[in-house]
Design a protein around this nucleic acid. Structure first.
Lengths: 210, 210
DNA sequence: GTCTATAGCTCGATAGAC
DNA sequence: GTCTATCGAGCTATAGAC
């Protein structure tokens, strides 16, 4: 059953992504949900409370998505490919509105908004999940740094994609990120120690998704 | 001689970086410049006109900066190092307010603001300048893709730096970017700087572009 | 060139009828 | 639970005195 509250959160979620939190007014959300402005305050005491609800919903959705990716992937490498593939899947949306996670974190950070921690928690969900994959690949000590590196690469692509709207650029960078993941793979199976991924003149696209 | 107009543009420039364009009101700028709100409209017809003036000022300043970097660098590699070093030099500002170029481009792109082209022109200044360095290094055909790659990396670092405020992360990524530039150098060439980038565990691949 | 005063609008938030 | 009406604050922009 979908309550009015759910409708509000869903509409706000979309609008916060498309227009930003601050730029989105109650009037805009009200129009999307087809209710009156005043009716908001039966469900939420303030705009910040709607933001909290949106963040909570995104956290839940992200958790489910990551679990699904893991369930669908045979190896940790495939998990990483699933993450990277997101840039291609959501290409159009990213070129139009940016990465929903990165743009929200940045907007709230710049505003000094108290909900920044919540938004960062979404980012941390990805960070931890990526770290886990690198741990499974045998990069225990550097797993977090590798996770951050991949996060930064994808955020950079999203940022330039939004500004320049260059599809070829996105695909090119995605290709390189895939190659980088391939180069991170433990050479022989079960590399116990070997913390560091070896730098090599890579065999670009060895991975076949499955 | 510094005119009132210049003062306004300078204050607006800083505030647009720190708070964003939309979030910055005339009242805030007026307070910074110590003039009355009404007085703005003698110098500018609208807020958008101030934005245009800020963008023009940034274009000019960026051109001068890039020319200076080139004058101070013995080799194209050193130019690239100067670019990367910017992330360290401006670390504190970036962690607090983000990259001034990236945040403005993204804000205007999301708003669908007509000044987006102007903001992108600043980004293109970097893109062209970086491309030029790669051309000088002998990467003619791939020079633009390499320039975009470096731009994306730095934007990604700036985005995560703003969200997470992790100094160690920034330094780690900068180190990797230096190493990547070194790996792009034409064989046999020697970079002058103390920048002699160390090769570290987390390097990103240059892939088969060459 | 700089000021005060204010129009006209939108915002987030409240009050109270139904 | 949903509505209408409205408040006060903040915004961009204008008018006109000095």
């Amino acid at each position: 059953m979908t309550t009015t509250r759910d409708h509000i959160v869903q509409a706000a979620d979309t609008l916060f992504h498309e227009q930003g939190f601050e730029h989105t007014s109650f009037a805009t959300i009200a129009e999307a949900v087809q209710i009156s402005r005043g009716n908001f305050y039966y469900h939420f005491k303030s705009k910040d409370e709607i933001l909290d609800a949106v963040i909570a919903a995104r956290l839940e959705r992200t958790r489910a998505m990551l679990a699904q990716w893991e369930a669908d992937s045979a190896t940790p490498q495939d998990c990483l490919y699933a993450f990277i593939e997101m840039l291609v899947r959501n290409q159009t949306s990213i070129m139009r509105h940016g990465c929903p996670v990165g743009t929200l974190c940045n907007e709230l950070a710049r505003l000094g908004h108290e909900a920044q921690e919540g938004a960062n928690a979404i980012l941390d969900l990805f960070r931890e999940w990526l770290r886990e994959q690198f741990v499974r690949m045998g990069h225990g000590k550097n797993a977090d740094a590798l996770a951050m590196h991949l996060l930064a690469r994808s955020q950079g692509v999203a940022t330039l994609a939004l500004a320049l709207r260059d599809r070829a650029f996105v695909l090119r960078e995605v290709d390189q990120m895939r190659a980088w993941v391939a180069s991170c793979a433990p050479a022989g199976a079960t590399a116990t120690a070997a913390a560091a991924p070896r730098r090599r003149a890579l065999s670009s696209s060895s991975k076949g998704r499955k």
